[in-house]
Write a protein that binds this DNA or RNA. Sequence first.
DNA 1: CGCGCTCTTGACTAGGGTCAAGTGCAGTGG
DNA 2: CCACTGCACTTGACCCTAGTCAAGAGCGCG
Lengths: 222, 222
Amino acid sequence: MMLQRLQGPRIFVESGKELVHEGQHQHSAYVLCSGWAYTYKGLPDGQRQIIDIQIAGDLLGIRSLLLKTSDQSIVTLTEVEVRKINTERLSDVFRSAPRLALALLWAISRDEAMMVEHLVSLGKRDAIMRTVHMLLELGARAELVGLGTSQGFGCPISQNILADALGITPIHLNRVLRQLRESKLLVFKDGLVTFIDRKRLIESFQMDFAYLNQDIASVKKR
Amino acid sequence: MMLQRLQGPRIFVESGKELVHEGQHQHSAYVLCSGWAYTYKGLPDGQRQIIDIQIAGDLLGIRSLLLKTSDQSIVTLTEVEVRKINTERLSDVFRSAPRLALALLWAISRDEAMMVEHLVSLGKRDAIMRTVHMLLELGARAELVGLGTSQGFGCPISQNILADALGITPIHLNRVLRQLRESKLLVFKDGLVTFIDRKRLIESFQMDFAYLNQDIASVKKR
DNA sequence: CGCGCTCTTGACTAGGGTCAAGTGCAGTGG
DNA sequence: CCACTGCACTTGACCCTAGTCAAGAGCGCG
């Protein structure tokens, strides 16, 4: 990617830190080079809904990049390595490299496709399906960047956090995980997700992950 | 907006037609000049989750604009007037008018902010809150483009469709609407939403619609 | 050692889904 | 003019998924 031109120096951040805070005015976007993070939105009553979970190669905070104040918070799940994206030069770069603008747009589109899928999960899938879907998606993405195999992947997410992403309570998530474990479909233990019977998982839950492998439209080829 | 340069001629489409179909390859984006539409994603079991509802002034299909195949369908709720957005010239336009690229990015961001809010609703709010939130949001947006007042607005959405957007069954939505009617908060009848006690609605449900009025970040001013 | 964290499990409850039946149209055709 | 059909909306009875409350286990850490 030509995104290099937009990037600042490497920054290392420890686990559990807030990279961007909801309501923050001077916020920037980052490329996540290594480690895990998640984006959430808080509710007035103190609850929070996790919007998405990011791994190496993902962009952080592009969503609210152009908004004056970020409406979401970003928190690290592990130690991470990020590079700040230089937003002041955006418009210059677009002029000199319009294809980069398209690349950025494409990255955002992929991001949105995942968010849409998440939204569908919360709207129409029950707890087990949500859980399976999320873990399979994370597994597929981890595999794409070499952080896992088709058998499983290291997943530094606590049940509390995963539950906040899935829109269910940690207690119920725990029950679901037990159920999946007992029916020999997958195991999530000690930060390690193991797909025992991946084929059966995908089939019996009718999952479709095409949206992860979206090609860029012909628009770019010119 | 300078979006004019990207637009094709006016097109009129009747109510209930699919503008873009899920899985379609040659799909384009549109500006919705008048009328209502919604975007949904279908599930293998025949259900569907409505992602968002669009009114005059909104963009249709920008989300999957850069993806080879659209993963969502767009359907008209009324007769609509749209203008096709010329995507072949995108990269040219970006070169000559990089600020337009930013404007587009900004439009996408606002769009995403609404989607995030929708996601939060599905994840963390119960049926009444979801309903109130959705109707207040639609009301605020309708008011912004002159299609309603703070008292209410014309809302050409059937309970079935609204339920599919809210992630609840039409039956339950009906119960919720009755409850809201009986507690003298709002009435949704004959395609007309009337806020009886808007202040109490917003207060008792702790709604925050700041995300609808996001200013563009300073990035653009250069 | 005790505190705090994540995880686990059980018992009970409630919000929302399912099933089923009925009402009130607008459209259509006899 | 009056069936007859189809659709959007209502409402009731019942059930099940997931939330709540409560308690305990295992573990890293000051």
